[in-house]
């Protein structure tokens, strides 16, 4: 039997301290030097789906009530559901054991066609405003919140979330082919804020604080 290897489109030059095999992915859990943040974290190995149907009310994916309005998000059962428009929802499994793709043909796995990353830390908005004209800090909007638009000139889905009185973060997906340039642009913009790659442990800790 051939052993499948899946590779993240994101590569960081930093030395990995702990690597774990998850499914067919080699996932960096921690880097040797992660600093105090802000951090950029590769989440490309986390399962993601697109759910599209003319009547979304008949679905309850992974026991989650789909948010009613475009832009709204809901984090339940380790899965983040982001309402994109009248007919589409993106579903990102952030933590926990891998969920299988539901049988219904309305679901499409997007894990292999998109890159997913997180930017965590107090400087996330300072970094983001160098790369996008979107207003991520609109006080009229509650978090978690989905934004759809250009980030570093690339069409992206971005979710702004944050721990209560804690560390804000941005989750971002875009087409897989942009990964290398996207990472280069974010690291360049975050250089003055000491942006460093971090492993999945840092992300898991941040997600745990969202509840």
């Amino acid at each position: 039997m051939t052993d499948i290897k899946r590779r993240s489109p994101m590569v960081f030059p930093q030395e990995a301290k702990q690597v774990e095999k998850q499914g067919h992915w080699a996932v960096v859990m921690e880097y040797a030097s992660e600093g105090e943040g802000p951090w950029i974290i590769d989440l490309s190995h986390r399962p993601r789906w697109d759910l599209q149907d003319s009547d979304l009310s008949r679905f309850k994916p992974f026991e989650i009530d789909i948010p009613g309005k475009p832009g709204q998000c809901r984090l339940e059962n380790n899965v983040l559901a982001n309402r994109m428009n009248r007919t589409q929802v993106s579903l990102w499994q952030l933590t926990g054991d891998r969920l299988e793709t539901p049988e219904d043909t309305a679901f499409t796995s997007t894990m292999d066609v998109t890159v997913c990353l997180a930017i965590l830390g107090q400087a996330v908005f300072s970094i983001a405003e160098k790369l996008s004209s979107l207003d991520f800090r609109d006080p009229a909007l509650s978090t978690p919140r989905l934004f759809q638009g250009p980030f570093a000139h690339v069409p992206c889905q971005m979710v702004i979330a944050g721990q209560p009185d804690g560390m804000p973060g941005m989750l971002l997906t875009c087409s897989r082919g942009y990964a290398r340039d996207m990472v280069a642009a974010i690291l360049h913009a975050g250089h003055e804020f000491k942006l460093q790659p971090a492993g999945q442990l840092a992300f898991d800790k941040w997600v745990a604080g969202l509840a």
């Binding site: 475009p70 994109m84 428009n85 009248r86 589409q88 759809q148 638009g149 250009p150 069409p155």
Partner: peptide, 8 residues
């Protein structure tokens, strides 16, 4: 069409 955004 909001091509680079929500696609609507």
């Amino acid at each position: 069409c909001h091509r680079d955004g929500c696609g609507v």
